[in-house]
Design a protein around this nucleic acid. Sequence first.
RNA 1: GGGCGAAUAGCUCAGGGGGAGAGCACUUGCCUUACAAGCAAGGGGUCAGAGGUUCGAAUCCUCUUUCGCCCACCA
Length: 882
Amino acid sequence: MERKVSLSPVFDARAAEAKWYEFWERSGYFIPSPSPEKPPFSIVIPPPNVTGHLHMGHALNLTLQDIVIRAKRMQGYAALWVPGTDHAGIATQNVVERQIAQEGLSRHDLGREEFLKRVWEWKEKYHRRIVAQLKRLGASCDWTRERFTMDAGLSRAVREVFVRLFEEGLIYQGEYIVNWCPRCETALADIEVEYREVPGKLYFIRYPFIDNSGFLLVATTRPETMLGDVALAVHPEDLRYQKFLGRKVRLPLLGREIPVIADAYVDREFGTGVLKVTPAHDPYDFEIGRRHNLPLVRVIDSRGFMTAEAGPFAGLPREKAREEVLRALEQEGLLERVEDHVHAVGHCYRCGTVIEPLVSRQWFVRMKELARPAIQAVAEGKVVFVPERWAKVYFEWMENIKDWCISRQIWWGHRIPVFSCTDCGYTFAHREDPTACPKCGGKVVQDEDVLDTWFSSALWPFSTLGWPEATEDLARFYPTSLLVTGFDIIFFWVARMIMMGLKFMGEVPFRKVYITPLVRDAEGRKMSKSLGNAIDPIEVVEQYGSDALRFALAWLTVQGRDIHLSMQRIEAARSFVNKLWNASRFVLMNLDGFSFLPLEAMDLDLKDRWILSRFHKVLKASTEHLEALEFGEFVQLLYDFVWGEYCDWYVEWSKDDLYQGEEKVRKKTQNVLLYVLSGLLRLLHPVVPFVTEEIWQHLPAPYRESESVMVAPWPLQEDRWFDDSAERDIALFQELIREIRYLRAELRVPPAAESTVWLNCEDDGLCALLSSHKRYIEQLARCSVERVAKDLSRPRHVALGRIRGVDVYLFIEGVVDVTLEAQRLAKKLLALEQDLERLRKRLDNPDFLTRAPEEVVEEEKRRYLEAQKELGRLQRLLESIQ
RNA sequence: GGGCGAAUAGCUCAGGGGGAGAGCACUUGCCUUACAAGCAAGGGGUCAGAGGUUCGAAUCCUCUUUCGCCCACCA
């Protein structure tokens, strides 16, 4: 069978990407095999925000998931990757609010229904965009199973979960102080608050006793909240203040009389040791207030403005109120001093606004009870974190878990399915929307709030598979096999999925959690739009191709360190893809007269046995790395093998056979080339799916084992191809070739000129090996090996080279520069002497001889003898030229 | 305040109890019929510092320094 192949010298990534993704999807390859004998392997995608755009973190995440899922598919699993998107409550609502703000409108102008209509429109538009971006990366998701956190099925799951938790008393409503974003105008969960160190001030304010017998000095960072003070507190054992307990002070500016109380929470060391208590605006003051039955005085409203309670400051925004309060205090001489003070201030994780702790009525989930089995499951290894250390982070949080505030005062999300009767006041959760009060038949109204977006995310691994229906998918693919996500959402998402999975499925949601590193820029800074250092993955795909990006990301993914992504690294990856492409072109362009031969039927020579040995070792090691989710090591091994062994040596040596070998030899080498290439394409396919598919499609049968590399079987690894002796021999040839190349380069032999070389070997075995394969040397060192013998005497006009066991005599034009020759050899001699010295020291140490393992001692002795022999020969060689 | 991670070539990083590695960058020479996104050769490092364990430490332990991250109720 003859094939004429003409392929461009540069891989056309763009054309391949469009062509092959469409082909794979059309062929149904992304859909897991229904065949029951195939074991299941499943991943659910961390659903990207529907209105978001793909950033490098996603690209990394998706690449790693795709690598695993593609490999598992080839390894014979029914591999399912469930795609989907998240409605991302606050984030999405904010985006749409900003958009309508450009029309001069607020959501309240539109009304709930109209506003939600706009969000849904937005969602449709951006959903298409994000899906298109996933596809460009090559993600082999099963799009027939795509889900959205607010689609009908998932909404049902959310409602089912809520109602069950409600009925079990695990969801409750209460009036508590919560983190409030005055810009988003909603409550936030504790973990949705980001604390940032900001330089601030500590203000020392005098609170005069009502009998004017002096004052207490209080330090605060938030003077405006003093308007809501209801007490001063000191530590009960603080001797400085005990005498004031029970007395009253006058609240500056407002004149309210407030008591001095004792509470152990107060830190005697901080400030003056006197704490102003503002239960309505500080979480810990709230607790103190409860303990002491103090009233709540709200001076800041839900939009961050001062309330009527703030007296003369009513209506001011909180920042302005601070200034005014300070000015007023100063005027009254009550502001004693101001100190610089750095402290952590909470910000909204969605919009960055400073959080205002406010008291409001919210829904909470009791977490302790849910957390207990989830802690146990991880402790027992039912869920394994990779890298392991993240389990510690998980435990730490879970063991100190607080109740979860799940209500949000926004419109975009799952409406809380709690209804109350306007007539009798009966409040209940319900799976369907009720038409009337079940108690009195009166009119019911639904709670206005929606659920935290993470509530629906927590159900993702089973809701996407059809729960609460008992679907086949659920039975087959739950628990899922692997979750790939970032450490930043271990609390938000991973922990909650484990809790909910155990609660509602009675089983963990995934067996393994792979925590990806963070993608940073080349300088190690977080990639962000504001820094302008973000590399847009889609732009990279446009410029370098999806394969290059995927390869670069996987290459950099090693345990225990963030990724520093640079364009240089992406270029290097692109170069590799092109290298693979060109090596394949070479193989495909040299298939004249090809016909298939099984390896067993071939007359394999040294280089063939070597490359097959190396291939099977690499196959074994790389497969193990992949199984262990060591992506960087997996990729590095293949990179080194493809470039440093297959291309640099085997392909080069094969040229003799292909260009001038007899037919039998040519066929043999064609088959070895194809055998290894076909294996490499399959090994590399999970990382670089497009280029491997493009090449695969050009492979001759039977190396193209299937209609697509995507559904080809993983290469079969066989130890019987391991051949240490061939590897040792080839290593010698490589060493020798490098020595001759080195001499030629040093002596400035014109690259086109062919050198004459004699090889003086120290034993017959070496002679036989080198002379029988002297073409290996001639091919790659551009020389003619005229003589290979033992005890060759050194001719005049040669440059001297030396590797273990072999003197190299390289014939040169004109006079030999003895000084240079001596320098070169002396360099080697020095290295050898140092080696010998180090070995001698070790062997002279009786402790080493007695305590080191025997094989180490033997090895060192062997090295010593070899080095000694080598040194002798080298010295004689050096003497002979002087 | 507690915890975690990192420090190795100019840069980005692998490795890991017994001979210092890669990519990029750099120097030199090559458009050699797969590839100049390439080929060949070369220079370059007290493996952060100090102790300790060990026959042997870049590697394990302790401390220190620097950087980064997470958690935490000092207003």
